[in-house]
Simulated scan of single mutants.
Amino acid sequence: MSDTEVRRRPGGRAARVRAAVFEATSQLLQEQGLADLKVSEVARRAQVNETTIFRRWGTRENLIIDALLADAAEQLPVPDTGSLRDDLIGYATSLAKYLTSPAGNALDRTLASAGDDPATRRLRDEYWNTRYSHSGQMAARAIQRGELPDGTDPRFVLQMLVAPLHFRIVLTREPLDPELPARIVDTLLSGLGTADSPQPGRQSS
């Protein structure tokens, strides 16, 4: 990215620097993985001073977390349709699209293969805790509307929703067919006992 491109980005210098640094971080994560990413290389590619990055983010891990969460917020908005089923299908469909894109696929594998040293573990925990906090709003709103029973754990709902998609991308590497999000959601809602959910494969006793 050239100096001219950085200067032309809208939103003021701070926003331009943030966008350039995030773009460089995302590219390097895809190319090199989590362990090999260096702030000096981010700075070089974003054409900013390394001290600027440390002054704003403090640590390499903070930068990576912020970049990953910013990308997720853009690619995975949390729907609010007034219907839990529609919200979950919309979110799962966006996630499936993201995970099958080159960037999303690479980042998912990067997070899955990251080590367990304290800094990496903190990075991973903070990333997923923040993601679940945002996306869990779908289940929390459904509890308030009476679509889900009181006491339902929103985080568990989201884990059950996204786990099959990540499993196929990272482990089995099966294709994500277009009907998969709806199939996952309907099976999930049937198991959670929502009043209006379909009952796939359930036999009366």
Rank of each mutant, 00 (worst) to 15 (best):
L69G: 07
Y132V: 08
T100S: 15
M1F: 06
L29F: 11
R85K: 08
R122P: 00
S205Q: 12
L176Q: 09
K38M: 05
T194M: 05
L88P: 01
L84V: 05
E61I: 00
V162Q: 14
A163N: 07
P198S: 03
E61H: 06
Q159N: 14
R9N: 07
P164C: 07
L76H: 14
Q30D: 10
N62S: 11
S205P: 12
W128I: 09
S204V: 15
A35K: 10
T4E: 14
E179R: 10
I143L: 04
G11W: 14
F167M: 15
S113A: 15
P118N: 05
S190K: 02
T25P: 02
G201V: 05
S26K: 09
D117K: 03
R55S: 05
L63Q: 06
L29N: 11
R145M: 13
S190T: 00
A67T: 02
F54Y: 15
K97D: 11
A195N: 05
L148Q: 14
T52A: 04
P198E: 06
E179C: 00
M138I: 12
D150E: 11
Q47T: 13
A19E: 10
R85N: 09
Y127K: 04
T4Y: 06
G191T: 11
E23H: 00
L111W: 03
L34G: 13
G115S: 10
G82N: 08
N105P: 01
L158D: 07
D36T: 10
Q30V: 13
R9G: 06
S190C: 15
D117L: 02
Y98A: 15
R183C: 00
R131A: 12
W128L: 13
T81C: 07
L28A: 06
A72I: 00
L176A: 06
D117V: 02
I53M: 07
K97V: 12
M160F: 05
G151V: 02
L88G: 05
L180C: 09
Y98V: 13
L99V: 02
D36L: 12
L99N: 02
F156T: 14
P175S: 07
N62Y: 03
F156Q: 14
R16C: 10
V6K: 15
